[in-house]
Design a protein around this nucleic acid. Structure first.
Lengths: 409, 409
DNA sequence: AGGCACCCTCAAAACGTTTTAAGCAGAAAC
DNA sequence: GTTTCTGCTTAAAACGTTTTGAGGGTGCCT
């Protein structure tokens, strides 16, 4: 009856007390006092499952009974079916080895007792894991969300579960999480490395855990596999698009070249001008931001609007969609119209790019495919089939909407 | 040079260019001359394990060996330190029982051999799991992303890993995933149920896996815990806001009352009118959508713009932000201004609500806190400490931005 | 009848860890 | 001098599964 009323400000930095990060003891998954519901005809008391709890009364939590009173395992199933545990295991894993009559008998026992395999025992003995890790930089980032979907889907098709970990851009947390993955003995991991330091990943490799690096094309091919998108190509496409529309001066909004991806997008833009016979130094402006978010994009409007020659900027290429949206918002507040007054190109093709007015022209990355490909490369490594490392580079694609138009005055 | 480029964005089946760097022919496993540590160790030959073509029959699960022949385990550590395995285990789990001298000796051995605990053995014996499940309706949904962050963070503090599963709104997949969680013997699970049918969850409970339902307030409190946000309250707040601005007629955009949350938002809106002494039937219009996305929101503009009395609609409350954005886009295309011509209120406070122009007035939900709370309730259940089921209901909060203004004509 | 080749089934031995209960000193109490 | 106690250590027994090699049938071929 105790309803928590909680109203938080929009402050995402967490006003909740940050507790210590000391790991607490792990949880007990043991038997919780509930009996199974399927009655078996040949056992004596058809025990009608008792109510799980009485109104709001704490569950009769068994203290530390790791071996609950006969939690149904392979042995119980075997007994019930009148065969040996080995046979049950065979029905589960290599059914073709078991005679049809026996097989159905066992399967009946399984469903009658509502048996579910214990993956700890299974994995321990067989040395095979049924889960893979996914270590991302920021769970919240919509880019990763799509990638995660691809990975999850591909993994699900192989019956693998995905263990999600968040490094929150912190090397320290990345390290801790990789260790966790090693302990869990995951079959493999898809990792967005937090920095260029591969030491931790090599450690993981030595622990026998395969991995694939995501969105980081600079992993040496004799060290590990990687899947990424060609950022330079994306910048190039954006530049060519603006040039085709008659623009001759473009501002790149979003410096912060510590981030490889951003630098390459900028280089691609310059390359477009180069190819067109225009000197990039002269025709491409650069405005740097402290962070690549919408707020910074909006704040930068005045700085962007007049270029170094004092001319009015007519085309802007933003390092990502958030910046582009923020920038457009800033323009809107000043009564400037997109694309009539300024053409804007973004990067990422977030789903919102198509929701806003005007629709945002942007460079799309095959996020979902990226995830699937990563998982596929991982699978290949795990099978040991095509066990060579591979570097897979996807091409981005320019999506034209309504935020860009031909230069006119 | 062949750049993948352009084509309109509305084609979802577009093929992505894909360049694959030439794969290295020779199979190269593990080490790459980048060894660290590892002083003393009987160097067995590099054991090129042959691929086990299992009777030519592909195993049902994609799998991987997690334990090589000489993988360092607790036994190797014990030998190295000159103690028994039991002592090593004690150092790991109950260090206070071990004499200081022994303890450091063991710890040295551990780091010297670079030992990492095998969670399969550990969990199997102890009956304690180190992971929890998170079953969501749609990994891609930004709402879940924030929730996931809260859960992941809270779990990490307990040293728990989060297993992410996606039911993609399919009962069939939900079922399969819950089964997977049971097999993995997770300590507990946070679940967004796909429908009102609790049967599968009760099955999970019988399997000894605790769970907490997310964003579904209608779970009976003697059946399980739940964490949700008061949708009716959100609708009420939106309604009151519009009333305070002088609006007397509001259209609710986004029917589809099969979805409980949506129905409650609508009811909240009507309640606001009721409280203000205005008959909801007369002052609240309802427009239903097949799906709650931006595209449908945009398409509905013409239908919304004139209400049933033939008057021009001046205020719209949308079931979520995506619809609101789509609707605003539609207005923009028709040259109508927000908020001068129409006031718009959304729901969810997606991060983009603050990026667009004009900023979207919307109802915010404490997503991150929701996730944390869910995990906390789960922990409580798992500890068996405050093991009673609990229903926690958070209050939403209206975030006023620039998409609403006082009614004037 | 004997030999052989199948096809099934199962006992028993792992897998790596935790936990229990026993053992063994040395110190303290009688 | 015995007993009790206290503080560490450990042998051995689990945990639930897979895997191996052996054994028991059956039927087919000489």
């Amino acid at each position: 009856m105790d309803h928590a009323r909680s109203i938080q400000g929009s402050d995402p930095s967490g006003t909740w007390g940050e507790a210590t990060a000391e790991p607490r003891p792990p949880r007990d998954f043991g038997y919780n006092g509930l009996r199974r519901f399927k009655p078996s005809e040949d056992t004596a008391p058809a025990d009608t499952s008792p109510a799980p709890t009485q109104h709001g009364v704490p569950l009769p939590k068994s203290t530390n009974r790791t071996s609950g009173p006969n939690r149904t395992g392979i042995t119980q199933v075997a007994a019930h079916a009148g065969v040996s545990p080995a046979t049950v295991s065979n029905v589960l894993n290599r059914p073709e080895l078991v005679a049809e009559a026996t097989r159905t008998k066992v399967q009946e026992a399984i469903s009658e007792l509502d048996y579910v395999r214990n993956s700890f025992g299974s994995s321990l003995r067989s040395g095979r894991s049924t889960s893979v890790g996914l270590l991302v930089l920021d769970v919240t980032n919509p880019f990763f969300a799509e990638v995660a979907r691809g990975i999850e889907e591909e993994a699900a098709e192989s019956g693998l579960a995905v263990v999600l970990l968040n490094s929150a851009e912190s090397p320290e947390r990345q390290r801790r999480n990789l260790r966790l993955l090693a302990e869990q003995r995951v079959a493999g991991a898809v990792v967005m490395p937090v920095d260029n330091d591969l030491a931790d990943l090599l450690w993981l490799q030595r622990q026998g855990v395969h991995w694939v690096a995501l969105d980081r094309g600079d992993v040496p091919e004799d060290v590990g596999s990687s899947v990424s998108v060609d950022n330079r190509e994306g910048g190039l496409a954006a530049g060519q698009h603006l040039l085709a529309l008659g623009h001759r001066r473009v501002t790149f909004l979003g410096g912060a070249f510590a981030i490889e991806q951003v630098r390459l997008r900028y280089e691609g833009l310059r390359a477009a001008f180069d190819e067109a016979g225009l000197d990039p130094d002269e025709h491409v402006e650069l405005v740097s931001l402290a962070q690549l978010n919408a707020h910074q994009g909006e704040r930068a409007v005045d700085q962007v609007l007049l270029d170094s020659t004092g001319r009015r900027t007519r085309a802007v290429f933003c390092a990502n969609d958030q910046i582009a949206l923020g920038f457009m918002k800033g323009l809107g507040k000043r009564g400037l119209r997109v694309p009539e007054d300024v053409s804007v190109v973004g990067y990422d093709d977030l789903s919102v790019a198509d929701m806003v007015h005007p629709g945002l022209t942007t460079v799309a990355q095959p996020k979902y495919e990226l995830g699937r490909a990563a998982m596929q490369l991982l699978s290949a490594q795990m099978d040991g089939s095509g066990a060579a490392y591979e570097r897979k580079i996807f091409q981005p694609r320019l999506v034209m909407r309504d935020s860009t138009s031909a230069l006119r005055d």
